[in-house]
Design a binder for these strands. Sequence first.
RNA 1: UCCUGAGUAGCUCAGUCGGUAGAGCAGGUGGCUGUUAACCACCGGGUCGCAGGUUCGAGUCCUGCCUCAGGAGCCA
Length: 442
Amino acid sequence: MARDFVYVEELGEHVGERVTLKGWLSRKRSSGKVKFLVLRDGTGLLQCVAFVRDTSAELFERCDRIPLESSIAVAGRVRRDDRAPGGFELGIEDLRVLHEAAEFPIQPKEHGVEFLFDHRHLHLRSRTPHAILRVRSEVVRACRDFFHERRFVLIDSPVLTPAACEGTTTLFETDYFGRKAYLTQSGQLYLEPACMAFGRVYCMGPTFRAEKSKTRRHLTEFWMIEPEVAFLEFPGLLELAEEFVSYVVARALDVCREDLKVLDRDTSKLESVRPPFPRLPYDEAARLLTTPESQARMAAAGAPPFAAGNDFGAFDETLLTESADRPVMVTHWPAAIKAFYMQPDEADPSRALCVDVLAPEGYGEIIGGSERIHDHDLLLGRIREHGLPVEAFQWYLDIRKYGTVPHSGFGMGVERCVTWICGVPHLRDAIPYPRQIHRLYP
RNA sequence: UCCUGAGUAGCUCAGUCGGUAGAGCAGGUGGCUGUUAACCACCGGGUCGCAGGUUCGAGUCCUGCCUCAGGAGCCA
């Protein structure tokens, strides 16, 4: 890719040279006989300086008239200067305005949530969203690298599907040439057949839930990465999950130091994320949550009390992970409150061979996974018990008729993971254009 | 869907007892030789979410609606 300019991130190689940079005017300050223009080019910020003595009167005066966020090309000599943010600055010798911006709505000050997300297309230029989305980019790359390094094959699952995977209440419905179609909730059902063809597979894509959730942990459109492995049984699944999460966190620490610093992330909390993760059987977790102390703390926090046999609430998840320095794997949930396709535990068939991986620091569930039922008749019974239409699942049942084998997989919510790694409070910050119950714009 | 709170200048907010609209930032003009969300002075800027009601008079009190935020449930 030929170019006639350099990026801010490359300036270290050009000290003392005359270079051209292209970008946007992110800030300006002036002090009578000296003007500072801060250029932003996507790779960093650069303070460009014009002294009245060293600059033509016309250029010096013109510096003041450039509206913020105008696109500009600046030429000049690069020098080290400790007074400059970033350690380098540019002595302006020439400056061209490529496009003069209209008044930019976002200021370097506090804004409300609604205003910022109404202007998300412009908000992406700001420091915090920029840092988070760079971390997201690296997290996604790490996810793919992890599976490709282990010889997994990418099998993309369809977004438009004919039936629900898990229930019918939370699906987005759309018209498909006169028939009903639904936006996918999970690629899992399509991955299971694929792992019988390729052994180790994964998919990654957007998934959709029409839940009317209004919390910091929910989006209606979010990205999920899901591996599925033939002949993988439950203990191996747990190992895969902890190795995967550890790999992704290690990559973020390795590659995204600067971005995490911008976000003020306490990275010491991530350094300890290494296998093995603690295994916490559901019954043990339930015991911890029903102690008088725990119940008292729930009441004090205004959280609903936990009762054994139920799913965990947000406060319950925080309690279970508060003393852990890495994610906690809650296993062996009551089959009754989990999905129909989960393999029952031989030792106690009322429990499923499944796992929820809970991130520490109150970030909640980032992974849900299980060994899948591989026996045809058992699966058929479960489909009926859950009141699901057997015809719609005929293809899924087929897998159990032609050389069925034990197999396992999980799904990780990309935004949940990025939110945790970045240490930001809300899931909507971890996706470029969030889709929420009240947000479909921009 | 439920609970709680909020809606006033482009943005973030203040507005007392019901008495006729304020600040900071942004924008404009001028000043300043090293600024770091610079600073100083001056200027312009309002359908007080919408619709009713009470009142001599409503940003303020009442009713309904709308929008948003925080939380719950559900989930990744």
